[in-house]
């Protein structure tokens, strides 16, 4: 789960206050992982600001952190772009990340289907490697490879079904 890039993704459509960011994050992704604590939120935002991926917009000095509005920078957008386009390394327990990516892509009107296809290809590539491994034997390795294959297959099924329902999902989260 990549919290910094997720926050960047949420900031991309429009500038936002920290409090609003937390609320969108929680409503979209809390089921997926864990709700964001304020400490984690402001720590991350500070780090992003330091790295030049976001800027504070018209902040009055002395005001509390929750009065700051943040806006994404060019560098930040590039970071989101790269992260979304690049398939995750196919390995077990990816669902949280993949889910965030899909939602962010939809929120930012990026080609979610294409990202999923790319992820799919990556998964299949990995499955081919595992298939070669399981064929090479011995049985202990074959069985281990099978474990990976079945998990990847589960991911792939999820990818396929999500691909088929992207339009519905877009309607739901951008409502």
């Amino acid at each position: 789960m990549n919290v910094p890039t997720t926050l960047l993704g949420l900031l991309e459509p429009e500038p936002s206050h920290g409090y609003e960011l937390k609320r969108s994050y929680d409503s979209l992704f809390a089921d997926n992982g864990r709700a964001l604590s304020f400490g984690q939120l402001y720590g991350t935002l500070n780090r992003l600001e330091r790295d030049g991926q976001i800027q504070v917009l018209g902040a009055a000095p002395g005001e509390g952190p929750d009065r700051k509005r943040y806006v994404i920078t060019e560098t930040g957008v590039a970071q989101v772009e790269t992260w979304l386009a690049e398939p995750e390394r196919p390995e077990p327990m990816l669902q949280a990340t993949l889910f965030v990516k899909v939602v962010l892509a939809l929120l930012s009107d990026r080609p979610a289907a294409k990202y999923l296809d790319t992820q799919r290809d990556a998964h299949l590539e990995r499955m081919r490697e595992l298939t070669a491994m399981r064929k090479a034997g011995p049985l202990s390795r074959t069985i281990l490879a099978d474990f990976g294959l079945f998990h990847l297959e589960a991911d792939l099924r999820w990818i396929d079904m999500t691909t088929a329902r992207l339009d519905q999902l877009r309607n739901e989260i951008t409502r």
Partner: peptide, 22 residues
């Protein structure tokens, strides 16, 4: 499909070939 050397996907009557190899 993992037994194959590569794969293409047909969706809605069109072929989608992979672009990026990881």
């Amino acid at each position: 499909a993992a037994h194959a050397d590569r794969q293409i996907t047909v969706r809605d009557g069109a072929v989608i070939a992979p672009e990026v190899h990881v």
